[in-house]
């Protein structure tokens, strides 16, 4: 295995978690890992990529973020490095840029992969179809294997190494240019990114009752609130929180489904979670078939008690 180029997103001077996982996945394949970072202020994050397995990090300066100009710069780097693979985390930016990079390289893209393995010099990928109802094991005949990796599926490897940082050509002006970002209220974690997801459904009866789930999420500290399609369609929660086939597919360490009966479209979106807890008053709800642990009963009593218990544990450290 030769060189793998990894698209590294950065925030506050550090590689984002998903990018750390992608660097880990690339180095686990035994490749020489080259990180590519775009935009001003990437230098500090670039220096840190060595810690996660990159041998080198290349910074492409840009005055403004544009996914099209970033893709052109990244594709040129993949070509110059004669890389055998290009990886990105399946974040919103990764999924925006990677298909363009792949197309510019005349390669297809394997999106949202859940596993990568070597078979001789070839890579074999596993990725979900039909939102996780099927696992597809796929081989590529593309000149460069281009893939995005689902978050929370690949291990971060802290190697303690250092990356040689260099500057690549600055990115050109883009055709679509980012003008502003309205951050999610309170710096909340995205449901696809959070290690713990607390999701609610119709069983919560009305929108204000999601405060209970907000409270449970804040008890965990590293949790995001998710929602079933029914409550998103009812306007109780934003679509950005929807888990399932027409929402997001998530794989957190812990998924707590509250008042969600478990439509097949919802189950498809969360069944790769490491541990699933279901809280539902109906003991026959399909969600219990998938759950590792279930509590039958009234969510309005159980959730506050659970939040209290979690707080107690967190306070003990």
């Amino acid at each position: 295995m030769s060189t793998i180029v990894v698209f590294v997103e950065h925030a506050a001077g550090a590689p984002r978690r998903g990018s750390q996982e992608a660097l880990g996945a690339a180095s686990a394949l035994g490749a020489t890992v080259v990180a590519v970072l775009c935009g001003n202020g990437a230098d500090a994050a670039a220096a840190q990529c060595g810690k996660f397995g990159a041998a080198r990090a290349v910074v492409l300066d840009a005055t403004a973020w544009s996914p099209d100009s970033a893709a052109i710069g990244v594709a040129a780097l993949v070509r110059a490095e004669k890389a055998s693979a290009f990886l990105a985390s399946a974040t919103s930016s990764g999924r925006d840029v990677a298909p363009r990079v792949a197309a510019l390289l005349d390669c297809t893209l394997f999106s949202d992969c859940t596993a990568l393995r070597k078979d001789g010099e070839k890579l074999v990928v596993t990725r979900p179809w039909l939102a996780g109802k099927l696992d597809a094991t796929l081989r590529s005949s593309a000149p460069v294997l281009c893939a995005t990796l689902r978050r929370n599926m690949f291990a971060v490897k802290e190697t303690g190494g250092t990356a040689a940082v260099s500057k690549g050509p600055a990115l050109g002006p883009g055709k679509a240019v980012l003008e502003k970002i309205e951050a999610r209220a309170g710096g909340k974690l995205d449901v696809a990114e959070a290690p713990v997801v607390v999701s609610g459904g119709r069983g919560l009866k009305e929108a204000p009752n999601f405060a209970l789930l907000e409270d449970l999420a804040s008890a965990f500290g590293n949790a995001a609130v998710g929602a079933s399609r029914a409550v998103v369609d009812a306007g109780w929660r934003p679509h950005s929180e929807q888990v399932g086939q027409t929402g997001k597919t998530v794989s957190p360490q812990l998924y707590i489904a509250v008042g969600i009966s478990g439509a097949i479209q919802h189950l498809a979106g969360m069944k790769t979670s490491k541990v699933i807890v279901a809280i539902n008053k109906d003991p026959e709800a399909p969600i219990f078939k998938l759950a590792d642990y279930g509590i039958v009963g009234d969510a309005f009593e159980i959730v506050p008690a659970l939040a209290q218990a979690v707080r107690k544990i967190k306070a003990q450290g």
Binding site: P67, D68, A71, R95, D96, V97, A98, P99, R100, V101, A102, A103, L104, T108, L109, S111, D112, R127, P128, W129, L130, A131, Q245, T246, T249
Partner: peptide, 14 residues
Amino acid sequence: TDRDNASVGPMLAA
């Protein structure tokens, strides 16, 4: 919602 690629649009633009 079948293959979940989310790729054709940005590829087409590129």
